[in-house]
Design a protein around this nucleic acid. Structure first.
Length: 256
DNA sequence: ATGGTCGTGTGACGA
């Protein structure tokens, strides 16, 4: 079973890319982030053989899950702050496995109110993850975490020191998530540096491979044994008019 | 040292 996650940076601008990616990758599940609007090409995605569900708002944020298999929606928001109206969380369920798609806040500039929101969001996520671990629910979390976990996940750690994506408090919060027993799927197979999922549009970052690894798949304890592979597929970042992110792909063995 | 690039929606702002 293949599951992919991709920040598409506007579904309106990248609808054709998503359809092409579904065709070429033959993913069973695709999680996308940054829809950046309310429109969604549900009909053409259905024609391609996928059920879909979106959590969206005007102009900003927005997440969606596409799946060859029908699914149940578990939650369309992260609990812990009733006043939070940003479209950043979608949790679904297929055969007792929960699939969580997140678009974690960017948080810049740090310090500031946006950074406080990011840290608060990470605390709420930890709370949700704790509940799932304690109830022995098998789950995977995929998405744009806006977290550079370690120095080797960027080209030059010095330039990222004060950024909300690499700030020590951000890395601590990410680490405390992992310490609940989650596995960073990509790092099981590849411990090397220069493996990135995002390259800025500016200053030839893509051409120079000056990127960051901020899109991740985390596996719950019960799912870790089912892990077959996890890779970054750099191809779509090289397409015409690309997203600034590229997909991360997870392969699971779900049959006993 | 500075600006550089996209997307939304048509203003700046977010990333």
């Amino acid at each position: 079973m293949k599951i992919a996650s991709w920040n598409v940076n506007s579904i309106k601008a990248r609808g054709d890319h998503v359809l092409r990616y579904l065709r070429e990758s033959e993913s069973d599940i695709l999680m996308v982030q940054e829809l950046k609007g309310l429109e969604f090409p549900k009909e053409s995605i259905e024609a391609a053989g996928y059920h879909s569900h979106i959590v969206a708002q005007k102009a900003y944020n927005g997440v969606a899950i596409m799946s060859k298999t029908p699914f149940d929606v578990v939650q369309e928001a992260l609990e812990g702050d009733a006043s939070d109206e940003q479209a950043r969380y979608l949790e679904i369920k297929i055969d007792d496995v929960h699939y969580i798609n997140i678009y974690l806040p960017n948080g810049n500039p740090a310090p500031g109110t946006k950074y406080e929101y990011k840290l608060g969001w990470m605390k709420r996520l930890k709370h949700r993850v704790s509940a799932l671990v304690e109830s022995h629910t098998p789950f995977i979390i995929g998405g744009d975490f806006n977290v550079i976990p370690e120095g080797k996940d960027c080209h030059d750690p010095k330039t990222w020191k004060d950024d909300a994506l690499f700030h020590i408090q951000t890395r601590k919060a990410f680490r405390s998530l992992l310490n609940l027993g989650l596995t960073d799927a990509f790092r099981v197979f590849n411990t090397g540096d220069k493996n990135y999922t995002f390259w800025d549009y500016q200053a030839g970052a893509w051409q120079k491979n000056n990127g960051i690894r901020i899109d991740h798949f985390l596996l719950s304890p019960l799912m870790a044994d089912k892990l077959e592979n996890c890779v970054i597929n750099k191809e779509p970042r090289g397409w015409d008019k690309p997203s600034d992110h590229t997909p991360i792909e997870l392969t699971l063995k779900l049959t006993p």
